[in-house]
């Protein structure tokens, strides 16, 4: 377990990296959302994560749990749409798994709690063509890699990120059952889900930061 101050720095760095990445990917994500949604996913997330990164940037006081919660709360009040409560609400509620700091174990707990909350709030099962499709394989892989295979956390998270990518690809050929894409019926087939994609992008950035 790393020192607490280092954990906070890592969280701030991660928030910053995610915000930068989502700004870079803003147009691409919105493009994906144009095809089967309403062309705002990129700007929703870029706006929200920038605000979240800013919110924690100068916060030298908070514990890791509090920082993560702050990120969630900021997302709730800045993102809006479906992804606001899903990302923000789930991060906020899962943040309590970091009560004792960020460890391999608490990260698995966070991931599970986060996935549960997303599924609970959005009521989407696997295969509904949502962020759940990227998240589920990622969380399952992460948990197994740590708990069963006892891999180092970084390796485990790299595998989880690769699994998320598989999930993103999986959203392409299937018909949406949740979210705006579901309004398109069969026409949603052949398009990649924006929320699954952003989930994967975020994981890539977390991996980068963890790797440093």
């Amino acid at each position: 377990m790393v020192d607490e101050p280092t954990q906070q720095e890592a969280i701030r760095a991660a928030a910053e990296a995610v915000a930068d990445r989502l700004e870079d990917e803003k147009e691409y994500l919105t493009e994906l959302d144009s095809a089967i949604g309403d062309a705002d996913h990129g700007s929703n997330l870029a706006r929200g994560f920038r605000a979240a990164a800013d919110a924690v940037a100068d916060d030298e006081e908070s514990t890791p749990e509090e920082l993560v919660k702050k990120i969630g709360v900021t997302l709730i009040s800045k993102v809006g749409g479906a992804s606001g409560p899903l990302y923000g609400g789930s991060i906020m509620s899962a943040s309590q798994t970091f009560e004792e700091g960020v460890t391999a174990e608490s990260s698995v707990a966070f991931a599970e709690a986060y996935l549960d909350k997303v599924k609970d709030r959005g009521d989407a099962q696997l295969g509904a063509k949502t962020m759940v499709d990227a998240l589920t394989p990622a969380v399952h892989t992460f948990k197994k890699s740590i708990e069963v295979d006892e891999l180092p956390p970084l390796t485990a998270f790299a595998k989880a990120t690769a699994a998320a990518e598989r999930g993103v690809e999986y959203t392409v050929p299937i018909r949406a059952q949740k979210g705006r894409a579901s309004y398109l019926g069969w026409r949603s087939v052949g398009h990649q889900d924006p929320g699954a994609t952003s989930t994967w992008f975020i994981m890539q950035e977390l991996l980068e930061v963890a790797d440093d």
């Binding site: 309403d38 062309a39 705002d40 700007s43 929703n44 706006r47 709730i76 009040s77 800045k78 993102v79 809006g80 749409g81 479906a82 606001g84 409560p85």
Partner: peptide, 12 residues
């Protein structure tokens, strides 16, 4: 009023 085509946030 949310952003264009985006639900307002819960706090508002």
């Amino acid at each position: 009023a949310g952003e264009v085509f985006t639900s307002p946030t819960a706090d508002q």
